[in-house]
Design a protein around this nucleic acid. Structure first.
Length: 346
DNA sequence: CTCGATGATTCACC
DNA sequence: GGTGAATCATCGAG
């Protein structure tokens, strides 16, 4: 049985709105058996037009009568089916939504920053990690840390309250629409499936709003990070001991002040800084030394003497232990070497 | 506040 | 990728 025939069958069952000229003697018999008068199209239209003239109570009464009609569920399901096959099939295709990569990125970032994750730990961990990356010692930046955490908590709170508001609004609106559609389904063909689809559409709309919220939260976090944890802004001079260690190495290797990866790691460990900070330091030192050797000469000699003394101490200890002395390769040369030679080396 | 020092970043080059 | 050079941003002494 095709849709058309099915619909006709349903319509005849409703009697009052049935067509008389279908040409089906069986349907006529059914109508007559129901005690309904035969009607033509003109009569039906007349009835429809008359509805607008009816009072609200009359209309409600008719609506109720229609709803109570024993064939109503059959007609309803047929109409739903037809609607499903025509209107909904057109837009049904693109409604399957795969997880949005953008939303996933935002979620990941918010989780990493401790905004959307569990209440405790995340934010401070992120702050600590960022501070460690910036090379700050734990004590000198603790004030900034608490400040950062406070601001992050603020962002977090705003994010969650907004999210909650959106979710509440979404569920309220969904309920409202569902009730509306259920109510309307008493008079027009709206299947539960269609209501479900409508709910999905609403949820998508609200999730796009949520994405905007997530986006702006991410932006806020990024701004906060750059303001509080940007390494350049939070530059701290290395402590005296670290600078001494670096200078000692630099001046004792003046002929080739390019520490190997191993040497950098060693220096980083000694100074309590990162390998990249060691690289930065040597990069800056080389270029600044080269630019103004005269200015650094005093410093160079100072460290040369210092390393010479250290080497002498070491060799003294070594000779005490009956070992041949192994003088430091760089320092003696440095004292004797002229500025020109050093310049040529660098 | 000024200014030199200094650690970090960026970009071009090899 | 490591380096040189220029530059930025901050520190800290005066």
């Amino acid at each position: 049985m095709d849709d058309q025939t099915r619909m006709m069958t349903g319509l005849t069952g409703l009697g009052g709105l049935a067509q008389a000229d279908v040409g089906d003697p069986d349907s006529v018999r059914k109508q007559q058996s129901l005690g309904q008068p035969q009607q033509d199209i003109g009569d039906i239209l007349q009835q429809i037009m008359a509805i607008t003239d009816e009072s609200l109570d009359e209309a409600q009464a008719r609506k109720h009568a229609l709803n109570c009609h024993r064939m109503k569920p059959a007609l309803f399901s047929v109409l739903c089916e037809i609607k499903e096959k025509t209107v909904l099939s057109i837009r049904g295709v693109q409604e399957e939504d795969p997880p949005d990569p953008q939303i996933m990125r935002l979620d990941n970032m918010l989780l990493a920053e401790g905004v959307s994750g569990p209440e405790k730990g995340g934010g401070s961990a992120a702050a600590a990690a960022a501070a460690a990356a910036a090379g700050g010692s734990p004590t000198d930046s603790s004030i900034e840390h608490s400040d950062y955490r406070a601001k992050l908590a603020q962002i977090r709170q705003i994010y969650h309250s907004e999210l909650e508001k959106y979710e509440q609004a979404c569920s309220e609106f969904t309920n409202h629409v569902m009730n509306l559609l259920r109510e309307q389904s008493r008079t027009r063909p709206i299947s539960p499936k269609e209501i479900e689809r409508m709910v999905a559409i609403i949820h998508r709309k609200f999730s796009s709003i949520q994405m905007q919220l997530k986006q702006s939260t991410c932006e806020a976090v990024m701004i906060l990070r750059s303001r509080f944890l940007d390494a350049r802004r939070k530059r701290r001079n290395f402590n005296k001991q670290a600078t001494e260690v670096l200078n000692e190495y630099f001046y004792s290797h003046l002929s080739n002040p390019y520490p190997s990866e191993e040497a950098k790691e060693e220096l980083a460990k000694k100074c309590g800084i990162t390998v990249s900070q060691v690289s930065n330091w040597f990069g800056n030192k080389r270029i600044r030394y080269k630019k103004n050797i005269g200015k650094f000469q005093e410093e160079a000699n100072l460290y040369a003497v210092k390393t010479a003394v250290d080497a002498a101490n070491v060799s003294a200890q070594a000779s005490q232990a009956n070992s041949p002395a192994t003088p430091n390769s760089g320092n003696k040369y440095l004292i004797l070497s002229g500025q020109g030679r050093v310049k040529a080396d660098i």
